[in-house]
């Protein structure tokens, strides 16, 4: 058996960190250990450390000096670069929350930094590990759909609030937060690159945003039109349009219109509806599953077996490229051409 892999958490600012920690704890005993937690929010570090039975560190360098094998970076988007580069310099393999960074330039610097340090860089696109998506991929790869002409996609959400609603820390609003998942899924499913991006956005359209942002203007509605190198066209709705009263947080939906078949995927459709005094409103309970070990498990495997990451830094950069082009398109009001 491979040696025990030690993993440091750099920030719990993004709630997905909780999910990854859960995945690590579910792995076979003795295969992985959480080496410690550092967070710019010291109280959060303490709280999470207590919850996960590990140690909180006041300084990032103190934790990295403990020589963990890997680091999971879940800080605010604009801080990814700093944290990833620090981890790489300390010789840690890195799993970085999506988006890899808000700009292509930062993504490039992170990829280069990790390459120079000789450590793997993996981007966290957890949707690839969902059972529903893996099954769709299998069927697309099997050729059942024929040439995919068009994809209509949504990745809706509820305004997440906090730093997500502060572009100084997030790099942008809904377009930043909810473009990259589907952009990555489309590249992964169709093996094509994006060639042209048009986007339109709405700012402070929803009551939840207005409450969260104060005087700032944040894009909370977004529609993207995409063209890909193999001829597929796509549309994505990335809006934070779910009101508080809606029974679920949001969705990931893809409709693939192929020359031979149409596939309509609702990634979180496997759910039960609960109406209860306890919950106060109707809530949807997801009961679908994901790949054994999930994204966290895949990262551990990369470190333990010296494998190339299944989702690379380059994948992260390509998704950010779409985001950057989308914001440019929103600003200019016209489509943006990518190299493809």
């Amino acid at each position: 058996m491979a040696k025990k892999v030690r993993i440091a958490f750099l920030s719990f600012a993004h709630m997905h960190a909780n999910g990854y920690a859960g995945e690590l704890r579910a792995l076979p005993k003795g295969s992985v250990e959480i080496a410690g937690i550092w967070d710019r929010d010291a109280a959060r570090a303490k709280k999470m450390a207590k919850l996960l039975g590990t140690k909180a560190y006041a300084k990032r360098e103190q934790l990295l000096a403990r020589k963990p094998d890997g680091a999971i970076v879940c800080s605010e988007n604009v801080l990814h670069k700093e944290d990833v580069l620090a981890a790489a310099e300390a010789g840690c393999g890195v799993l970085c929350e999506k988006p890899l960074a808000p700009t292509v330039a930062d993504c490039r610097a992170m990829i280069d930094g990790c390459a120079k340090a000789g450590v793997p860089l993996m981007t966290a696109f957890p949707c690839r590990f969902l059972g529903t998506l893996m099954r769709l991929k299998e069927r697309v790869d099997g050729g059942e759909l024929g040439q995919v002409l068009a994809v209509s996609a949504t990745n809706h959400g509820r305004q997440p609030g906090g730093w997500f609603a502060d572009p100084k820390r997030s790099g942008g609003g809904a377009v930043m937060d909810h473009t990259v998942h589907v952009a990555d899924l489309l590249r992964w499913l169709l093996k094509q690159e994006f060639t042209r991006v048009y986007a339109a956005a709405g700012f402070n359209r929803f009551a939840l945003t207005r409450k969260a942002v104060g005087k700032r203007a944040v894009d909370d509605a977004g529609l993207l039109s995409l063209e890909m190198s193999g001829g597929t066209v796509a549309a994505l709705d990335c809006s934070w349009s779910r009101p508080a009263e809606y029974p679920t947080w949001g969705d990931v939906k893809l409709e693939l219109i192929g020359a031979q078949a149409v596939a309509r995927l609702d990634a979180f459709r496997q759910r039960a509806l609960l109406a209860s005094k306890r919950t106060g409103k109707q809530v949807e309970l997801f009961w679908g599953d994901q790949a054994q070990g999930g994204l966290g498990g895949a990262f551990v495997k990369v470190l333990a077996e010296g494998l190339a990451p299944p989702i690379t830094g380059e994948d992260g950069l390509r998704a950010t490229e779409v985001v950057e082009a989308a914001y440019r398109s929103i600003r200019d009001g016209s489509p943006v051409v990518l190299a493809g």
């Binding site: 002409l149 068009a150 048009y198 339109a200 039109s225 995409l226 063209e227 001829g231 066209v233 796509a234 549309a235 009001g333 489509p335």
Partner: peptide
């Protein structure tokens, strides 16, 4: 005010 679109007609 504006319209934009992508598609295929074959």
């Amino acid at each position: 005010r504006t319209v934009y679109g992508v598609g295929h007609f074959i």
